[in-house]
């Protein structure tokens, strides 16, 4: 599908021209070229190209099993691609890690239960050449009060904040978060994102994977939609929405001719459910006019689609191809 549009967010305090100049000369935070990775017969990543510019906040949006985590592992140097290349600030991922340029908050694991929160941070800090003070990252992650608690006794949300604090230690240029709020309650999720947002406001590049659409919509400048190991859409939340800004028409129409309906202007999908028909279209007026004048359709309902629907329509189209 031809839905790949580059993002053009503006950096506050710069003119558009300056921004573009800066961006063309800057070394990309991440540059993926023709990336592929398989596990046995499972093709997890099937040729991803992506450039992340410094300062962007990017959401990697996709259902479970779309290849988000595999792609992130490749960015972090935790696994090696079968084909294509990964560059982080112009270097190999492992080199970028050693230089403290990139750090990550992983979904699960990665913590020693028998250490305290503060010990975990002191240990991690000792491994880097330059770090922010432990007390500072504790405060920024909102866990100053549990520094002496054993990691094994921390709640899932607290452990996630600890992972975030660890990731902040090297003061990385680029922070990668893999489904960071999985398993958190609504309040925990909101607080966590508030902390990330505050941090990103200071100019850090952030890439996060999520399957929560509202997270991508609320916190990202740019959304990269991943399905079946490929990028199926890339743009601002508004652009992604606009690209699928169509509406869904539901009508009662016995013996609907799905093929004929499919041929109407702007129709993307037609689904017949018993006597009902559901039509996703970018031109709801034309379809409604046709249904009411040329067919026996009645009880029409027209609803607009949100990002959720966009997500479903884009990724399910990928299914069919």
């Amino acid at each position: 599908m031809g839905l790949v549009t580059p993002a053009h967010g503006t950096v506050v305090g710069m003119t558009q021209t300056q921004t573009l100049q800066a961006r063309t000369t800057a070394v990309p935070a991440i540059e993926l070229r023709g990336l592929t990775k398989s596990f046995g017969s499972v093709r997890a990543v099937r040729g991803i190209d992506l450039t992340v510019r410094p300062g962007e906040i990017i959401a990697f949006l996709g259902p479970n099993g779309a290849g988000k985590t595999t792609t992130i592992d490749l960015m972090l140097g935790l696994s090696r691609p079968d084909g294509g290349s990964v560059q982080v600030y112009g270097m190999e991922p492992s080199a970028a890690v050693r230089h403290g340029l990139i750090s990550a908050v992983m979904q699960t694991g990665g913590l020693l239960k028998d250490l305290t929160v503060a010990e975990t941070l002191r240990l991690t800090a000792s491994l880097f050449s330059d770090t922010r003070p432990v007390s500072e990252v504790l405060a920024r992650a909102g866990i100053s009060d549990i520094g002496d608690r054993r990691v094994g006794k921390c709640s899932g949300g607290q452990q996630q904040r600890l992972r975030f604090a660890m990731a902040l230690l090297p003061d990385p240029e680029l922070l990668v978060l893999d489904e960071p709020t999985t398993g958190m309650d609504v309040t925990g999720r909101r607080d966590f994102w508030a902390a990330i947002r505050e941090d990103a406001a200071q100019g850090r590049t952030v890439l996060f994977a999520t399957h929560y659409l509202e997270e991508a919509d609320a916190y990202a400048d740019r959304i990269v939609l991943i399905s079946h190991g490929q990028v199926v859409a890339d743009g601002t939340a508004a652009q992604v929405k606009a690209l699928v800004s169509g509406r869904t028409i539901r009508a009662t129409l016995p013996d609907a001719d799905a093929t004929a309906l499919q041929g109407l202007p702007g129709v993307e999908t037609v689904e017949v459910r018993g006597d009902s028909v559901l039509i996703a279209t970018t031109d709801s007026d034309a379809v409604a006019r046709h249904l009411l004048s040329a067919t026996a359709a009645h009880d029409l309902e027209i609803t607009s689609r949100g990002l959720e629907d966009a997500f479903i329509s884009l990724t399910s189209e990928e299914d069919q191809s």
Binding site: L78, G100, A104, M106, G110, L111
Partner: peptide
């Protein structure tokens, strides 16, 4: 516990 993997995100 996934700590070895975590350490690969550090210069160690």
């Amino acid at each position: 516990q996934g700590w070895s993997r975590q350490l690969r995100l550090t210069p160690l």
